[in-house]
């Protein structure tokens, strides 16, 4: 029973984390039909920026609680700089190309950002452990969990609910849905599609960076984290169905639970299990669990 509880709690924590790192990816794909390989690098940039911002804040002797604000600020900063730069400077030039070519373009961005990150932050591991330790821990039965994980769970719920509300309840959200549904029609109706893309991409980058910034206190930030995270994020969004917000949530829960189960019951298949589920879903339901029908051609 205890182990079951441990699996569920670990699964919830891991799922929350997965949702935060993957939701920006699915948002960008949903609106722009770009499977952004550079998402992992933006996550890494967020993590690095968090160590820099948080480190600076703490080194100045400001109250440590403020470091949480610095994590978020780091993500916003990365989003506002990198988002418009990549979208206006590059992606704008390649809209309309085949989806797989767009994958290659973002893969090139991934490669570039990998080295830019190294040049900016060096290759030695960085860390910002303070926010992680600051909140102490809590107990569930005999199990101990860091309170920071709880914060992560709450934050990911907030992000999910917030995005759902924006999409369904606001004018901007309706515009976004119109663009998702039919780009050309939306443009004909006077929607500024270019601006929608710019905002969507920037928000997507911000979410990637937020994932990185929130993860930074729990890991050592070093080269390579981008490549690891992007494939996990792929798995999550592919399982749920590319471009679907609900799908990303479902994918995160499935991957999170499967991994938590594997870690406790069968550690050898931990990594394998995630991709096995991804392949399985693609085989059984290629469009992801939230599927859309195909149109007739002739």
């Amino acid at each position: 029973m205890n182990q079951f509880l441990a699996i569920v709690i670990d699964g919830i924590i891991y799922s929350s984390w997965l949702f935060i790192i993957a939701v920006g990816l699915t948002l960008i794909y949903g609106v722009m039909k770009i499977l952004n390989v550079a998402h992992g690098s933006l996550y890494a940039l967020g993590a690095y920026a968090a160590t820099a911002f948080g480190g600076y804040w703490l080194a100045q002797g400001h109250p440590p609680m403020g470091s949480y604000g610095m994590l978020v600020l780091a993500a916003v900063f990365v989003g506002l700089i990198a988002g418009p730069l990549i979208e206006r400077g590059l992606l704008r030039l390649v809209y309309g190309k085949e989806e797989v070519v767009l994958v290659l373009v973002t893969y090139a961005v991934f490669l570039i950002l990998e080295d830019l990150t190294k040049l900016a932050f060096g290759v030695d591991p960085l860390s910002i452990p303070e926010p992680y330790g600051l909140l102490g821990s809590f107990e569930v039965g005999e199990l101990m969990y860091p309170t920071y994980s709880l914060v992560l769970v709450v934050l990911s719920l907030l992000v999910a609910v917030g995005l759902a509300l924006i999409l369904n309840r606001t004018r901007q959200g309706k515009i976004l849905q119109a663009v998702i549904h039919d780009r050309e029609m939306s443009a004909a109706m006077g929607i500024n599609v270019g601006r929608v893309y710019l905002v969507t991409f920037t928000v997507g980058v911000m979410l990637a960076a937020l994932g990185g910034a929130l993860t930074a206190p729990t890991i050592s930030v070093q080269p390579g984290i981008a490549a690891e995270v992007i494939v996990l994020a792929f798995a999550v969004v592919v399982i749920g169905g590319l471009g679907s917000l609900g799908g990303a949530a479902l994918g995160a829960v499935i991957v999170g639970m499967v991994r938590a189960w594997a870690v406790h019951k069968w550690p050898e298949v931990e990594l394998f299990s995630v991709y096995a589920v991804m392949a399985l879903v693609l085989i059984v339901r290629p469009q992801g669990l939230f599927a859309a029908p195909e149109a007739r051609k002739i």
């Binding site: 499977l35 797989v100 290629p286």
Partner: peptide, 19 residues
């Protein structure tokens, strides 16, 4: 499979081996 789905499924298979 075609396009990005081919890319993704082939990626998943190679990551399974890696895992």
């Amino acid at each position: 499979y075609r396009s990005i789905f081919f890319a993704m499924l082939s990626l998943a298979f190679s990551m399974i081996l890696f895992g």
